[in-house]
Design a protein around this nucleic acid. Structure first.
Length: 419
DNA sequence: TCTGGGGTCCTAGGACCC
DNA sequence: TCTGGGGTCCTAGGACCC
């Protein structure tokens, strides 16, 4: 059996933990640069002002009318709360995999809790609430896709109240009949539209579709989804935990960038973030993609330029990738373009342990330096040490107008209780 | 006044080579 | 004269997820 634990409106719930004054109010959290809505608590959703990824300025008036509390993304806080949630959840299963900042998969693989699945799931939910004050939903099922579906049910289908277990036919039918196609993991709006063309309107109907026909009309992935909905495991634990094949770090700027050296600094910063992620999964990159664009909404037209660089020797060294950024910016930068977004992608990844070193090529090995940098940044926070060429003044730092304190990660922000 | 997230995977199509 | 194959690499964009 598999379980999926998923926080309820993670970011909005994190904001409420340390701020009792907003617990009964509609709370909405914005993305980077306060661009879009990315999370809304259930009160905001009920008032109809929590639509995900809608630009903030378009709904600003509605939010004000609803009396909503607006918050900028406070990643320092969310990352810390996330870690507490994961620590608590992972105590309950022999194998876990953190799937995103607010989701963790459990793999029980032959083991069954003596108290039964429902009680077990309830215990996880209760522990996270008691220890972290974060509301979560727990879904249990015989496949990862059904565990995801059960998790959806635990929050959205009446009667489940945070815990749903698919361990019999009636429950599987009831849950799959009461969900939308797009609620299923791997089915987005386009696939749902095409499925409806084949008279498949609900996940229950999808579970009864002919797998080979689905494979022919769509892809192996959709075929796997059909099997998974039937209860046949197609996503193995290795699939769920597979290392990434590409790693990107990209961001839009708080202010448009018009200078080449600032663009270069931003790119090098992304090189550092992407390379650190790469080292964390113990991979090497054969290719780097370095790009920058203006805003697609820009009146002067869309400008996008990307440079692909193939490394002579696969690397995970920040300084090597930073050097490529320095060269690439000469080709990417164009005078007069107001740059809005840039990033670095590392693709064509291979496992470091499998890499064969070339006997004849000489190269400097910075792996000790990188390991030291990672260790310091892990201990004292990201960006404590970095390559100097990414700059020290963040002129392109993102806008975070409605930022809450870093309650748990900064000494000066620790909550005080006055007696 | 102006404002529009970030990440991963996959594929189509063009350029280029043999 | 015109047409023909197959591979690799790069680029752009679509689809999906949170």
């Amino acid at each position: 059996m598999y379980a999926l634990c998923d926080a309820n409106s993670m970011y909005a719930s994190c904001e409420k933990i340390f701020d009792p004054a907003i617990r009964d109010k509609p709370v909405v959290v914005l993305t980077n640069n306060d661009g879009c809505i990315c999370a809304a608590c259930h009160i905001a959703k009920r008032l109809g002002v929590g639509k995900k990824f809608i630009p903030y300025f378009q709904v600003k008036d509605d939010l004000e009318k609803a009396g909503a509390v607006i918050r900028s993304s406070n990643y320092e806080l969310y990352a810390d709360i996330s870690q507490r949630m994961m620590d608590t959840c992972s105590r309950f299963a022999p194998n876990s995999h953190i799937y995103s900042i607010d989701e963790i998969f459990h793999n029980y693989d032959g083991w069954e809790p003596p108290e039964g699945w429902f009680q077990h799931a309830r215990a996880i939910r209760r522990a996270v609430w008691t220890e972290v004050r974060l509301p979560i939903g727990v879904g249990v099922g015989p496949t990862p896709t059904l565990a995801k579906a059960a998790n959806h049910a635990s929050k959205r289908i009446a009667g489940y109240r945070g815990v749903a277990v698919i361990d019999n036919e009636q429950t599987r039918q009831h849950i799959l009949q009461n969900m939308e196609l797009t609620d299923i993991w791997g089915i987005g709006s386009r696939l749902a539209q095409r499925l409806q063309g084949l008279n498949i309107y609900t996940p229950w109907q999808l579970a009864h579709a002919n797998p080979s026909l689905i494979r022919k009309q769509f892809s192996v992935l959709v075929e796997s989804t059909v099997y998974e909905l039937q209860g046949v495991v197609k996503l193995t634990w290795d699939d769920v935990k597979a290392p990434k094949k590409e790693i990107y770090s990209t961001r839009s700027f708080g202010q448009r960038i018009l200078e080449k050296n600032l663009l270069c600094q931003a790119l090098i910063q992304h090189a550092g973030i992407a390379a650190a992620k790469l080292r964390r999964q113990n991979s090497l990159a054969c290719v780097a993609v370095i790009f920058a664009t203006n805003s697609p909404h820009d009146a002067q037209g869309y400008y996008r330029k990307s440079i692909t660089h193939r490394f002579a020797i696969p690397t995970q060294d920040t300084t090597v990738i930073a050097n490529i950024c320095r060269q690439a910016v000469e080709q990417i930068f164009r005078k007069g373009v107001s740059f809005y977004r840039c990033g670095v992608g590392l693709i064509d990844l291979c496992d470091k342990a499998m890499f064969q070193q070339d006997f004849f090529t000489q190269f400097t090995d910075n792996s000790n330096l990188m390991a030291c940098m990672d260790a310091i940044n892990m201990r004292y926070g990201r960006n404590t040490v970095h390559v100097a060429s990414q700059g020290f003044q963040q002129k392109f730092a993102m806008r975070r107008e409605f930022l809450s304190p870093q309650y748990t990660t900064r000494l000066s922000d620790i909550p005080r209780i006055q007696c």
